[in-house]
Every structure is written in C-alpha cells, then in structure tokens.
Design a protein around this nucleic acid. Structure first.
Lengths: 130, 130
DNA sequence: TCTAAACCTTCCCATCATGGTAAGGTCAAA
DNA sequence: TTTGACCTTACCATGATGGGAAGGTTTAGA
C-alpha cells in the first residue's frame, strides 16, 4: 500500500505519516525499488490507533506510551487507566482555564450596553480602570 | 523606564515586549543614546492592557482590534461587545471540544478495571476493536 | 511508443506565543 | 578599574500541522 492510500484509510495525512516516522513515533516504512514507502495492514491499524488517540487529545509523547502499552501483552490495565486518568485531569485543567476566561468575559459583555456610545466595561476592565 | 522595569510592572516579559514591537502590535519604543529602549507610563498602561486581554484568551490579532477600539474615542460599545461575544463563542467551542474528549475518556476509564490484567477497554477502543 | 496525470520523494518554510542562549554593548556601584 | 546587572540583536526551539517547490515513478490512454 502506498502512503496516499494509507492516509485515506487511516485518516492521517501523508504529511503527518512521514512526520511520525521522522520523529520515531512509528517505525520507518519498508521501501519499494522506486523508494516509495510500502505499508501493510498492521501499519494502517497502528495509524488508526494514533488517529483515535489524537482525537481524544493525547499528545504525541502520551501516544508513544500508549503504543508501548498496546504492544505489551504483559501490560496491566492499571497502567493504561493511570495514563488515561492523568490525561482526564489535564483536560479538566484546560477546560477550567477556558471556562474562567469565558465566564469573566461573558459577564463583562453582559454588563456592556452594546449601543452607539463609547462607554464600555469591557474596555475599561482591560485598561485597568477597575 | 528601561524594558526590564516595564516587564516587571506590566507583567509581560522583555522577550514578549520586543516581540510585540517587532510584529507591530505596539509602536517602536523611543531609544536613548545607548540604544536602550525607553518607555513611559502610557506604554506600561498599554502593555498591561495587552496582558489582561491575553489572560482572557484573546489572540494577538484580536488584541490588535481591541487596542484600536481602546484608542478610538468614537468607538461604539457595540463594536467592543461584538468582538467580546465572538471570543466567548470561540471559547465555548474550544470548551466543548475538550469536554467531549474528557467525557469519552472518563467513560472509558470508568469501564476499565485498573488491575494487573491486560484487558482494557481504553486500549481496545483506541485499537478499533469496537 | 509517447504523453499526461497522478502519484511519490526530500527539503525548506510557516503557523502561534513563548522562551533560551550566545556574543557583545552600557552603566553604576564598589 | 573591575564587577555585576542591565541592555542589544540574532538565531534556534517548542507541538502539531500544512504549504509549496523541484524532481522522480507509475499508470492509463491516445
């Protein structure tokens, strides 16, 4: 299978497949005589795994760990769960940061008349009047 | 005032102050004979404005607009409010993306025994068994 | 058989906001 | 005079992704 077909099936762009190879997230693909990369079903499977992990917000380094655990028949589910819960904690922290921003700003916007006059609590707050 | 003092007072690093100047977010600072940048109270005020806007998650380009509105005595609060509410919408979208990730993953983790055995719904889901 | 299209290759550059480091200039206090 | 704390510019790095150029390969059709 050529890289373009793998990209279509796995949902990861050719750009990123080559990038993942360059940074050692996946092993270097076999090559044909033409120097084209050649992939098998296992490679597609692995790339789909990576796509799903990315969709859950895991970083490349976390995915490195997940791939190791996936390949390790001796893994304990506790190890996987630990990694997942750490990521959940990270997501929660990021959500809370964004929520605080949103709440503050929504509050300010709520207090802004939004008419033709220049007076505006949003600008005033940003300028440090308060 | 030298850049280091401004950084301390405004809460923006010297690195970023120079960067903001380089990308035209703030005007080029006056220079002394030594070629050191020289700042006044207005500059500090503006940088503090930028810091607060960044703390609310506004991008540099959005801050460009906010600075324009701040400086414009003829602005309407409606313009400011519009910008703020667009940003609130953006924050909400980002929050929802993270929330979906978190909910999915928290759910999977909840279904994972977390013991010494290898069976794990998290890994299974990522590998596309389901 | 020739050609054009659709692949593929590597290499370099860009994003966004931020920081690090290096090599060197300035200034004030001891 | 020396030392230390500033400052300057210039270059490189991050993380994940994409764009584009210049050139090689393969395949289908005229």
């Amino acid at each position: 299978m050529q890289i373009g077909a793998v990209a279509k099936v796995s949902g990861i762009s050719t750009k990123m497949i080559r990038h993942y190879e360059a940074i050692g997230l996946i092993r270097a693909a076999d090559r044909r005589d033409s120097n084209y990369r050649d992939y098998g079903d296992d490679d597609v499977h692995q790339l789909s795994f990576i796509r799903r992990a990315r969709a859950l917000g895991f970083s490349i380094d976390e995915i490195r760990d997940l791939l190791r655990l996936w390949a390790d028949g001796q893994r304990s589910s506790a190890d996987v769960k630990k990694l997942a819960l750490e990521h959940v904690g990270d997501l929660n922290r990021r959500i809370n940061v964004l929520r605080e921003m949103r709440d503050t700003l929504a509050n300010l916007a709520h207090c802004c008349d939004g008419d033709h006059r220049p007076n505006c609590p949003i600008i005033e707050t940003l300028s440090g009047v308060i």
